[in-house]
Design a protein around this nucleic acid. Sequence first.
DNA 1: ACTTGTGAAGCATTTCACAGCC
DNA 2: GGCTGTGAAATGCTTCACAAGT
Lengths: 227, 227
Amino acid sequence: MPIASGRAPEPTVSRLSLYLRCLRQLAREGVKTVSSAQMEARLGITSAQIRKDLSHFGEFGRPGIGYDVQHLLGRLTEVMHLDREQRAVIVGAGNLGAALVGYWGGFADSPFRIVGIFDNNFGKIGRMLWNLEIQDVRRLPEINRQLRASIGLVAVPGPGAQEVADTLVESAIRAILNFAPAVVTVPPGVALRNVDLTRELEILSYWAKQIDSLPGPAEPAPAANQR
Amino acid sequence: MPIASGRAPEPTVSRLSLYLRCLRQLAREGVKTVSSAQMEARLGITSAQIRKDLSHFGEFGRPGIGYDVQHLLGRLTEVMHLDREQRAVIVGAGNLGAALVGYWGGFADSPFRIVGIFDNNFGKIGRMLWNLEIQDVRRLPEINRQLRASIGLVAVPGPGAQEVADTLVESAIRAILNFAPAVVTVPPGVALRNVDLTRELEILSYWAKQIDSLPGPAEPAPAANQR
DNA sequence: ACTTGTGAAGCATTTCACAGCC
DNA sequence: GGCTGTGAAATGCTTCACAAGT
């Protein structure tokens, strides 16, 4: 029994987020208790997978009963550090950057809060975006001493992405979500994930093709692992 | 030698898109020939992985020399069906939908073209977004007979996502990119990928935590597999 | 009767390492 | 000497299946 956190596989962690969303919905519905089989029905992730995933972080269920929704919700929220405010800055005040500010501006009960938006374009610096003033990315390290954001979102064109990431690291950011179509590297101790929109479409283009040229009757698409 | 396409693993296909981007850059730089080791230096994907990936689709390299950039670029473009126009529609004309239209409106040399945007809100229907008129999502199946899009982007709030996906399937869409924070299911023969922004931040929140609470000196973050 | 937690088995992907070719 | 393509080994993840708990 690996009491609480050891080192969990990356796929497991990424599914935790899905479990959380499912549990929040169950809580809204007033459901008290849920079995891994019931979650399978909602998420399309096998019950064995769910139990194995949860087992990395502790023993949350009761044989014959299932999981207490509120309890599991609380524990997973802690495990993922979503029980505290998570402050984030966005670099890049273009279409995408603006949409991202709006995206998390909407929900007040989210732990994520966008506390700053930065750009390198003098035409944009000083303008307001929602309730935030666009600031000079060159001042980011200095300004983040006040903002104390630990997450950075990179929404600039590909060629500028590495430089922006370096600036974020220099600003004591611990996690970067990169939307730029570019390979970004970060030093040990900084987490990085990429969201690459063109890449997603290209991958779909491949699978759509595969489906077209299938010999027999249609086969299930690989469904991206419910990623 | 599995001449050209058999069934390639999903991770391989998803990396193909990275190889393409790298090759396009090499072509712009005027580089004629590239080895898997040189690509490793640019992409952070091991040379053995690159060679194994490419081997699923044919033998493109020459021992002692490497790969001809133009040739490999051309072949991979074919493999992924990016040598033809790929028409897409977006459902949801909110912040995100609008940003997505702009995102692909920018680049003219992309095979992806947004040919329609739809919403269910009468306040939005009829308004223009860039050069497209927002249309009633209820008319999507009918209108797509003219548009002939095969890709659909879902940019609506979570609760509406499944209904929208069903409408897209009914409209002869073969591939769906879902941005809504919801589990969507599609019938066999339709490809589906999810881009879940909140989920990405939640996962980063976990890894950033892991880093904080590391006993020894910092360790590399799992880097999301360059995903 | 139902459900969890988990070793063990099964499967998929990555990495190794080298024969063969330039 | 340098590089590809690929079986074989290693690794990592998922699924099975069941003892134990309610």
